[in-house]
Design a protein around this nucleic acid. Structure first.
Lengths: 131, 131
DNA sequence: TAAAGTAGAAACTTTTAAGTAACTAGCCAA
DNA sequence: TTGGCTAGTTACTTAAAAGTTTCTACTTTA
């Protein structure tokens, strides 16, 4: 997490923005919001270029903040599925607003780039990746 | 700015979150939003513990992103005043929402800490610090 | 018997960003 | 003429975070 101030206990908003600003974090949340719950390996494939270490670290953080859940299925090989919690979905709602601003300010008109749109498909896509 | 992904041109939302997540940045925006336009020295006094270097750097960045403006008055000694632009005010609106979430999730009920609330006083306080 | 797939953990290196401190210009007042 | 005010800039140091690589357990398949 990027430090936000010198203080040990930054304010709630700083905590939240700190979480979101970590590398890859928005990308991961975006994939989970458009794709629904996703397994570790698939997540790693979709978030191109991320290392397992980083992905694990980010997922742990997001889980700790209760923005995503982790579902462990002790099959062989094991299946671990990650998805947005209600908190996560609530957050995505606001992120969409923020994204609208950002698109207006920085976005080129020629369509969003891969991994760069927050769309409201959280509800509909939430279950089709577990199988 | 904390790196958000490996790519050279991250998506608009990443840019925006990247700006906000820099150290002190939210604090500075918060001061400008509650206090109205503020001069460099006063800003430095209000954002306790920040170095001139950091403050300058953050202000330059925010100015570059058109979230704040810089007004230079070539008096002796010179007076430089910083304030939120329309963009900045628009952003603060959404930050308030985000702050509401954050308060609900992380906030202790016992009042906000210093420097930790986003309130809607942008319009009313915007001019009383220039003088 | 060896390889491949899953979801990581641990050790190590490199990079980058944040902090510290000293310095500047221009004028004024004592 | 020394110091103080403002709003910075520059150079240097240090600490944290990101990246890279190698390793694991477990079972199935070839």
């Amino acid at each position: 997490m990027a430090r936000v101030s010198k203080e040990e206990s930054p304010c709630p908003l700083s905590i939240l923005v700190g979480v979101l600003s970590g590398p890859w974090t928005l990308y991961i949340v975006w994939v989970l919001s458009t794709n629904g719950a996703t397994r570790f390996g698939e997540l790693k494939r979709r978030v191109e270029g991320i290392s397992t270490k980083m992905l694990t670290e980010r997922l742990r953080l997001l889980e700790q903040e209760a923005l995503i859940y982790r579902h462990y299925e002790p099959t062989v090989p094991p299946q671990v599925t990650y998805g947005l919690t209600d908190r996560g979905k609530e957050l995505v709602g606001i992120l969409n607003q923020l994204n609208d601003l950002a698109q207006r300010w920085y976005g080129q008109p020629d369509v969003a780039q891969v991994g760069c749109t927050f769309v409201d498909t959280v509800e509909t896509a939430a279950t089709d990746a577990i199988r």
